[in-house]
């Protein structure tokens, strides 16, 4: 109905219904915050209780049994867009819930938390889900004394945010100062003589400090690589090629992005060159180099680079 209704049926003050001893007992207990069922002649427990055994039509015994309050979902439906009369104003489930100790199930609303309107049911909503009632503080003796059921607590959400102010360190600061000028710097180790790019201020192999600066070329050779198809918000769009590049003049490969060529044409031994961003965009960051792209040179033989992989 898009416009205002023009006809309303509403009994003033609401219907007054007598509930009888069995339903009455259930609602009275509910008002006190307890869930009860009634035992049938053959020993089963009905929740919500009725005056009769729905299977046989026989009268139930007068024995009331406290059940639950926890229960198990036996079936459910999911309401992605609640209607005004629904007990919840966000997407929720209707569920048949068998309280512990009962042999039958109770229908009630099941609140699974925040969802956007129209959301699909969450995957963990399924038969077997353990739930408990959420009681209203003010109860009047109606099924609405239970506002809804909620899943038992199986997980808590633990948002954690820790803030750091990290420094790159002396060696990295110097390396990035070079990058800011378009130069790629390394250190030569005084013991093994190898050129380490980017420099670390020490040689990991010999455990000695290094300080002799060496500038290396921005061209090099791919020693090995991976084609990445697993997307990650922090990484380049897939597929992207992460490659170990041995820069000319360096003795240690550097992990770098290779682009400007289809991923399936990247090769071990391929010659590449750094693609720099426009000079006016440079800063002390490796982002100055967009990626490495192929050079028009013959591939390097695997024999010559196999010791660098």
């Amino acid at each position: 109905m898009s416009s205002e209704p023009n006809h309303v049926v509403e009994f003033p003050g609401g219907y007054t219904r007598s509930v009888g001893p069995v339903i009455g007992r259930f609602l009275t207990e509910l008002r006190d915050g307890r869930l009860v069922g009634v035992r049938t002649a053959d020993g089963r427990v009905l929740v919500p209780p009725t005056e009769y055994d729905p299977e046989t039509g026989e009268a139930v015994t007068g024995e009331f049994v406290e059940v639950g309050p926890a229960g198990t979902v036996t079936s459910w439906s999911w309401v992605p867009r609640p209607r005004p009369a629904h007990p919840l104003d966000r997407p929720f489930a209707w569920a048949l819930i068998r309280p512990d100790g009962a042999d039958t199930a109770l229908l009630h609303a099941l609140d699974l938390g925040e969802f956007e309107e129209g959301a699909d049911p969450p995957r963990y909503l399924k038969a077997g889900l353990r739930v408990r009632p959420k009681w209203r503080a003010e109860r009047t003796g109606g099924i609405g004394d239970i506002a809804c059921f909620r899943p038992e607590v199986t997980m808590i959400n633990a948002p954690t945010r820790l803030e750091y102010r990290l420094r790159g360190g002396r060696a990295l600061d110097r390396f990035l100062a070079g990058i800011a000028e378009g130069r790629i710097l390394g250190h030569r180790c005084p013991v093994c003589g190898q050129v380490i790019v980017p420099m670390k201020g020490l040689c990991p192999r010999d455990g000695v400090p290094t300080s002799e600066e060496v500038e290396v070329a921005d061209t090099g050779t791919v020693t090995t690589f991976a084609v990445n198809n697993l997307p990650d918000p922090r990484a380049p769009d897939v597929p992207f090629v992460s490659a170990y590049v041995l820069l000319d003049g360096a003795d240690l490969t550097m992990l770098a992005l290779v682009a400007g060529i289809p991923a399936d044409q990247v090769r071990i031994g391929m010659r590449v060159k750094a693609v720099w961003r426009p000079r006016e965009e440079w800063g002390p960051t490796l982002d100055n180099i967009k990626w490495f792209e192929p050079l028009d040179e013959p591939d390097v033989l695997f024999e010559r680079i196999k010791d660098y992989v």
Binding site: L172, T224, F225, N228, L230, L255, L286, V309
Partner: peptide, 28 residues
């Protein structure tokens, strides 16, 4: 793969790290 502000995220998970070495083994 939580990395500090100074490293690029070219390695996504352990597979991203080990794949180039596997390729090198196959070649070798």
């Amino acid at each position: 793969t939580v990395s500090g502000p100074f490293s690029t995220s070219l390695v996504v998970g352990a597979g991203g790290y080990f794949a180039p070495h596997i390729r090198a083994y196959m070649r070798r």
